[in-house]
Design a protein around this nucleic acid. Structure first.
Lengths: 233, 233
DNA sequence: TGTAACCTGTGGTCAGACCACATGTCACCG
DNA sequence: CGGTGACATGTGGTCTGACCACAGGTTACA
């Protein structure tokens, strides 16, 4: 057995504490210095492990003293997923085309679930669409609300894994979406079309037409990327 | 603007270098001490950032000297995805039920793609099945090969994002799959059924019957979890 | 020519120090 | 008695310097 690295000792200890119920969301981790002494490693090794946990979205750290200070278990997967996918796309571990394809699969499944489920809560989705249609938006503002709309559908489906993965995929290709928007012939025309498509997706969901909703979502996503990639010629 | 944390400076610098093409897979990162001096931060902060990159599967580090030493861009998303999902399940950020549901969605999409694509390369999948059927296996051995089979299907689909996500989902619930197997009334009976289902999935793919393949996969996955969760009573 | 000793550069780890900050405490003053 | 301001405490954030283990190259020697 090759010697485990010191930071892995810390990571394993925290994971074991989580699995055994000694740590739960909302709990404080011991102070870094205590953790180091307990595990027999240096404080810097503890900090490397905590940094990983923080980026992965498991803990939140705060300086100072009192109940809100220290490292607290939060289990927010969105940020970690985003960082992972964004960096993997940057390092060419993930192809942008694969990210888009995966979005199609997940979002197709989401709208199917919503359409076949009874009375999904789409209030926040509707609210976002209304905000998008209220006044002319810059491309960045529009894309931010577009992301929020797609994310709200994922949240409505109630699957936290899908929601977090979606958030990651979206943020991984956010730069490409923005760059693509800049090269479009007519942004007002495209954004108007996208808003119509949003309404169409929502209508199909509310009507319980799963196949229509899936098709509309497919057209919505792949259409945008097909359009923005024309500029590559 | 609040001061960025020192390790984030390093992370951002590496990400920018990747996006701008100054770093590519196979390249070496500068030595930690050089990186620290260049970015104006301490070496410990550099190390925290590198640890994150390592866990996320972006780099591989090695001690010593020569071409194989140092931090090298590798972009292997599987390990990072596994760590992220495993820890999120441990910290109750992800519900096991949602992980299984997401597996159903992704693996259903995978077999559909394979069945509708022309001449997918399933040689390694077949090889794994043959190995499973060769001799009696312990539960751990069987589950490892089972995971390899499902992963090989994902790889055959050619989508790296789906493959890595699948690997993560699988490893996140590996402990539950193993614990469930231990509580089954008859492991030989269950494993025999699982092997038959594998053959059925493969046959449906090769026959081009997408719906049948998807249904078979659905039955395969949800059936196992339904069976193993009986013991919760 | 081969080989053994040595040198160099790298990551891995630790110890200690200092800072900024949020909170709690306590003495003092009205 | 009540407020309020100064101070003590404990936390994460960061840096510096040191030492080790290790892999590879280099050099000197047989």
């Amino acid at each position: 057995m090759t010697a485990p690295r010191a930071w892995q000792v810390v990571l394993d200890a925290v994971e074991r504490d989580l699995l055994d119920g000694r740590l739960s969301p909302g709990d404080h981790l011991p102070p870094e210095r205590t953790l180091a002494a307990d595990l027999g490693v240096g404080r810097s090794s503890v900090r490397e492990a905590l940094r990983v946990l923080e980026v992965l979205g498991l803990i939140r750290t705060a300086v100072g003293s009192g109940p809100s200070a220290g490292a607290i278990i939060v289990a927010r997967p969105g940020g970690g997923m985003s960082a992972l996918m964004r960096l993997q796309v940057a390092a060419q571990g993930f192809a942008v085309a694969d990210v888009v394809k995966t979005r199609l699969v997940l979002e197709g499944s989401i709208v199917t679930d919503l359409a076949t489920g009874d009375s999904p809560d789409l209030a926040s989705s509707v609210q976002i669409l209304t905000a998008m249609e209220g006044q002319p938006l810059t491309e960045a503002e529009f894309l931010a609300l577009d992301a929020a709309f797609h994310l709200s559908l994922a949240e409505a489906s109630g699957n936290q894994v899908v929601t977090a993965t979606m958030a990651g995929l979206r943020s991984a290709i956010e730069g490409y979406a923005r760059a693509g928007a800049a090269g479009l012939p007519s942004w007002p025309a495209t954004s108007a079309r996208l808003m119509l498509e949003h309404r169409g997706i929502l209508a199909a969901i509310l009507a319980g037409e799963a196949d229509a909703a899936r098709l509309a979502m497919h057209t919505h996503i792949s259409g945008y990327y097909a359009e923005t990639h024309l500029r590559d010629h």
